[in-house]
Nucleic acid binder design. Structure first.
Length: 379
DNA sequence: CACATTTGACCCCG
DNA sequence: CGGGGTCAAATGTG
């Protein structure tokens, strides 16, 4: 069952990502189509499983969620169970988005033959990037969501160096998606996904012109959220970011999120926690009532309530931003209190006319952003 | 002052 | 052994 659950979670995640990246892909129907296909496919597999062996799926391993039978999976008509899943509070909107984009897909006729791509191709065809989920379920057997112990007393010089529990990211599954960087305005803006990330590293990668940024959930401490992501822009297409996510967000667990989680045993990710986690894009470290993010709200809010906060640049302009500094969501210290606001913005703009390409301009009024000096001559 | 980013060093894994 | 991922001190910003 774990596999199935994971699949579900994955599907949800995809949906969420799609939703989140909507602002960026708004003007790229083909991308949307692809993305939708993925989601549909994902849930299609789930349906298959649930329909056949509800508890099976044990041994194999779900990692290749790219199933061969991706023909009848049409979120629009055939799938029942799938929709059931999608009907979950948080996915209602995703569904509408899906339906909407499906329409696009049909129109643009850019249907993806196989979404399944084991590897992300370095080249981007035209403007249409390949937003592909490329999962790498490394967990061949047991999947310990534990990720790694980030707080190990990793003494820098002295002390034993064996204390380190740092494992290669072979535990947590990871999936890669490509998101186009907004062509207008801040093209440096990294893909925003509704979560707040904190950059903890950057490194030049062999074979890549651009450095790779390492981010982790801002709430890692509070919630022991092991979610991480790497952002790297393709050297073949600087306008495209390749984002690799790893781990799940265990933060923003419930509306009554305690200011500080008492015992932080990383929830193995129960089904419930799973979709809750994959639904709400975090709320805050405490003071901010996450009510806004509760699935319930999705239901009441405008159906299309896409709170995709593509923001990021946030005028905070933190003293950084030299590279493709994907900025950490909200603001430095202001917490993510901004989310709701942005959410409204997005909400409004998407409700008004999702076809406006300049919608981004709405979000990034001062998109000019004379980029930053790549010549950061400090010191 | 608290928190985020920068950046070089450290360490693990392939 | 080297690349990639992470840590943590230093630094910057609101």
């Amino acid at each position: 069952m774990d596999d199935t659950i994971n699949l579900i979670r994955r599907g949800c995640r995809l949906a969420r990502e799609l939703e989140i990246n909507l602002p960026n892909m708004a003007n790229q129907p083909s991308l949307l189509a692809i993305s939708c296909e993925e989601i549909i496919q994902a849930f299609g597999v789930i349906r298959e499983r649930l329909g056949r062996n509800p508890l099976d799926a044990g041994s194999g391993g779900y990692r290749e969620m790219q199933e061969p039978r991706h023909s009848e999976v049409q979120a629009g008509s055939g799938s029942n169970n799938i929709e059931e899943w999608l009907r979950l509070p948080g996915y209602a909107q995703a569904v509408s988005i899906l339906q909407q984009s499906q329409h696009w897909a049909g129109t643009s006729g850019s249907r993806m033959g196989n979404i399944e791509r084991r590897e992300v191709r370095p080249e981007v065809e035209g403007a249409a990037a390949t937003v592909v989920g490329h999962f790498v379920g490394t967990g061949g057997g047991g999947e310990e969501m534990q990720a790694m112990d980030v707080s190990l007393g990793r003494r820098r010089s002295a002390t034993s160096s064996s204390e380190r529990t740092r494992r290669r990211n072979s535990d947590a599954e990871k999936w890669t998606i490509r998101v186009p960087a907004p062509r207008m305005g801040n093209t440096e803006l990294p893909p925003e996904d509704g979560y707040t990330w904190r950059k903890y590293g950057q490194k030049e990668i062999l074979g890549s012109k651009f450095p790779r940024g390492y981010y982790r959930c801002t709430h890692q401490k509070l919630y022991h959220c092991s979610a991480k992501k790497q952002v790297q822009r393709l050297d073949s297409d600087p306008f495209t970011f390749e984002v690799t996510y790893r781990g799940d967000h265990t933060c923003h667990m419930s509306s009554t999120t305690p200011s500080i989680l008492p015992p932080p045993p990383p929830p193995p990710a129960s089904l419930e926690a799973a979709h809750v986690a994959t639904t709400q894009p975090i709320s805050a470290s405490a003071p901010v009532p996450p009510s806004r993010w509760l699935p319930l709200d999705f239901g009441m809010g405008s159906a299309g309530g896409s709170r995709n906060m593509a923001i990021g640049g946030s005028g905070s302009g933190s003293g950084s931003g030299s590279e493709a500094g994907p900025s950490t969501g909200g603001s430095r210290r202001g917490k993510e209190v901004e989310y709701p606001l942005v959410a409204d913005l997005a909400d409004v703009m998407f409700n008004s006319g999702s076809s406006s390409t300049n919608s981004m301009d709405f979000i990034f009024p001062a998109s000019k952003e004379d980029k930053k000096d790549e010549d950061n001559g400090k010191d």
